[in-house]
Simulated assay, not measured.
Amino acid sequence: MTRPLPRTFLLLLAVVALVLAALWLRPAPDRAGKPANAIPVRVVSVVQQDVPRYLGAIGSVLSLHSVDVRPQVEGVLTQVLVKEGQWVKEGDLLATLDDRAIRANLDQARAQLGQTQAQLQVANVNLKRYQLLSTDDGVSKQTLDQQQALVNQLQATLKGNQAAIDNAAVQLSYTQIRSPVTGRVGIRNVDPGNLVRTSDTQSLFSVTQIDPIAVEFALPQQQLPTLQHLLKATTPAEVEAYLDADGERSLLGKGHLMLIDNQVSATTGTVRVKAEFDNQDGQLWPGQLVTVRLRTAVDEDALVVPPPVVQRSIDGHFVYRLDGDTVTSVPVKVLYQDSTLNIVAGVKAGDRLVLDGQSRLKPGSKVEVTPDAPAPAEMADRRSQP
């Protein structure tokens, strides 16, 4: 015989059944108040700002003046008056050579000049005497002509003596080697005490101008009209030089466009371009490879969006614009693009466009905006970085 269940147990079962029924019949909660079929997307607002356009290239830093200092006369290098790496000015004395032999030649030339001057003085006195005597046939015309020829010969010898003095003075000046430019002294190749000759293949050292300095780079020949327009502009086109290191760029200096080469390379189809930089802090160094950006134009009040916003179809470019909780496909025209932004036409400043999640969208799709989209100010900040 089965015993009946206690009344308390039956009441407990009834309560549990009522709770389960209430949970089963309650409608599912609407999470965050969004439709159950909404597609999560990220959005960004259209920004209106001035956008500079750039051309990029790899350039090489060049000195505007770099001189290999070599002797112009043969002699023993007696002194080197500058240190390696020292900054010097144009005209500073760098080194001296043994000048004793050249000084002796200069003294000899001066002595010969004095001797010729004395001979010419006597010849002129005799010439005047013969000219007076020739008026009453006191001397033959032949004798007078011979004396005149002697005076002319001594005058020519005098000019030769003076030229020899000038040449010896120039040779003497070569024994003092002075800096031809303002710049930095390089590594010394010859020590004092060595005999140096003009035929030596190795220079004493070099002097290289550092400030200002130039950067040379090449651009496609299709950019030649743009470059010519920039050269004719009243304001020089700005050029920036960056050093790429460990995946990051550091600005080395800002300069301006100086010139373009007078011909296009037939092998590469490029034209060489040179820019000049103020380099007081020495960030740019001759022979250094840098990344160059040439500013070609500035688009004022341009409508700017990140590159992922713009989609492409067989009909052209388009974007998804957020209208309430749905999206609309809007055709746009891409006016300019680079790795950081696109300049578009067809939308308005402040329009909210889909940045991520377009692959699941179609016109009229309901969307749920996620909060991790970049703000417009952040996009502008990234544009200012190299």
Rank of each mutant, 00 (worst) to 15 (best):
P4E: 10
L5W: 12
T8W: 14
L10P: 09
L10T: 06
L12T: 15
A14T: 10
V15T: 14
V16S: 14
A17R: 07
V19G: 11
L25M: 12
R26H: 10
R31Y: 15
P35A: 14
N37G: 06
I39G: 00
V41Y: 03
R42I: 09
V51G: 10
Y54N: 06
A57L: 08
S60P: 06
S66W: 09
V67S: 10
V67F: 05
Q72V: 08
Q72P: 04
V80R: 11
L81K: 12
V82T: 07
G85I: 04
L94A: 04
I102Y: 15
L113N: 14
A123T: 03
L127A: 11
Q146N: 15
Q148M: 10
Q148D: 11
N161K: 01
A169P: 05
L172H: 07
Y174E: 11
Q176N: 12
G183A: 08
R184A: 09
R184C: 05
V185T: 03
V196I: 14
T201Q: 12
Q202E: 10
F205E: 01
V207M: 10
Q209P: 10
P212E: 08
A218Q: 13
P225Y: 03
A233K: 05
T234H: 11
T234C: 00
T235N: 05
A237D: 07
A245K: 01
D246K: 08
L252E: 02
M258V: 00
I260W: 00
S265H: 06
S265E: 13
V271S: 09
D281C: 00
G282I: 07
W285Q: 15
Q288G: 10
Q288S: 04
E300D: 01
E300W: 00
D301F: 10
V304H: 02
P306G: 02
V310A: 00
S313Y: 01
F318G: 00
V319S: 02
Q337A: 09
S339C: 01
V344L: 06
K348E: 15
A349N: 05
D356H: 12
K362M: 06
S365Y: 05
K366P: 01
D372K: 07
A373G: 15
A375F: 13
E378A: 13
R383P: 00
Q385A: 11
